[in-house]
Simulated assay, not measured.
Amino acid sequence: MANLGIDFCGVHFKNPVAAASAEPTLNAANMKKCIDAGAGSVIAKTMTDSSDMRELTTRAKWRFLNEKHEVCHGKVPRAFSLYSRSGLALETPKEFMKEIRETVKYAEQNDAVVIGSIGSTEIDGWVDLGKQMEDGGVPLIELNFGCPHPKLMPGVRTGMNVGQDFNYASEITNAVANAVKVPIIIKVTPQVTDLVQFSGMLKDAGAGAVTLTNRFIGFVPDIETGKPLIYGKAGIGGPWVKPLTLRWINEVRTAFGKELPITGTNGAYDWRDIVMFIMSGASVVQICSAVMCYGYEWLGKQVRGLEKFMDEKGYATIDDMLGIATDAAIEYSQMPPEKAHVNEDICKDCGMCLKACFSDAMQQGDGHVYVKQENCVGCGGCLSVCPVDGSIEIAPNK
Rank of each mutant, 00 (worst) to 15 (best):
W126V: 00
V138P: 15
R247V: 15
R157E: 10
N214E: 11
R54C: 11
N30R: 10
S359P: 06
K151A: 13
G257A: 06
V104M: 02
R272D: 14
C357H: 05
A112S: 12
A107R: 00
K187R: 06
A361F: 05
Y83K: 07
C147E: 06
L202H: 02
N30S: 10
H12S: 15
N266M: 08
K61S: 11
Y370L: 10
A329W: 07
G136W: 05
N343K: 12
V176E: 07
V138T: 15
D345V: 10
P77I: 03
N110I: 03
V196P: 13
G40N: 09
D349R: 02
A179P: 08
L88Y: 12
E122H: 14
H73G: 12
G281N: 05
I118M: 04
L90V: 11
D128P: 15
I249P: 15
E122Q: 09
K14Q: 11
E108P: 06
T211M: 01
P148V: 04
A329M: 14
K301T: 13
P183Q: 03
T46S: 11
D270I: 06
L195G: 15
E55V: 15
D366P: 06
D311K: 05
G264S: 13
Q197V: 12
Y231E: 15
N110H: 05
T46C: 07
G119A: 12
I35E: 07
G323K: 06
A29W: 07
G87F: 04
S283N: 04
I172A: 02
P148Q: 06
V210S: 00
N167E: 11
T213Q: 02
I6V: 15
R272I: 03
C350S: 14
G235R: 01
S51T: 14
I236F: 00
P183E: 01
A39F: 13
D194E: 04
M292T: 12
N161H: 01
G206N: 09
M335N: 09
F145Y: 15
Q109I: 11
K68C: 05
D36H: 01
V241S: 03
S86V: 06
D194S: 04
A316P: 12
L202I: 09
K68D: 11
M352S: 13
C72L: 09
T173R: 01
G74R: 03
M31P: 11
K313T: 15
M352Q: 09
P150Y: 01
P336I: 08
E142L: 00
S283C: 07
K339H: 08
W126H: 01
T57K: 08
K75I: 13
M1L: 05
L244K: 05
C288L: 10
S170W: 03
L212Y: 03
E224D: 08
T254N: 02
V303H: 00
H368T: 15
N397K: 09
Y370F: 12
L322N: 14
T225E: 01
V291W: 00
A205Q: 01
D270R: 00
N250G: 14
G146E: 08
P150T: 07
C293D: 11
